[in-house]
């Protein structure tokens, strides 16, 4: 994901802003990292350049 995506995404649970922690990036985008809700503290992974912003209960279900 490009860092500019931060301007449009929010926590799916309470719509609060997210904080980005980068674990791996290239010149253009973030490849791995964590998005943390500044309000409720829920975390969302970024893997292979794709943020998973499903609510936690749906994330478990979609893991198959």
């Amino acid at each position: 994901m490009k860092e500019s995506l931060m301007d449009v995404i929010c926590c799916p649970l309470d719509k609060a802003p997210l904080e980005l922690d980068v674990d791996d990036e290239d010149d253009e985008e973030v490849l791995a990292g964590t998005l943390t809700c500044t309000e409720c503290g829920e975390t969302y992974p970024i893997e292979d350049g794709i943020p998973n912003l499903l609510p936690p209960d749906m994330r478990e279900e979609a893991a198959a």
Binding site: K2, L5, I9, C10, C11, P12, G49, I50, L53, L54
Partner: peptide, 20 residues
């Protein structure tokens, strides 16, 4: 993403800000 689209795993519009 392989097509170059900025991809997000999401349930409908739930993780997007107002007026985004």
């Amino acid at each position: 993403r392989e097509r170059g689209v900025e991809a997000v795993v999401a349930d409908l519009l739930s993780p997007f800000r107002a007026d985004a």
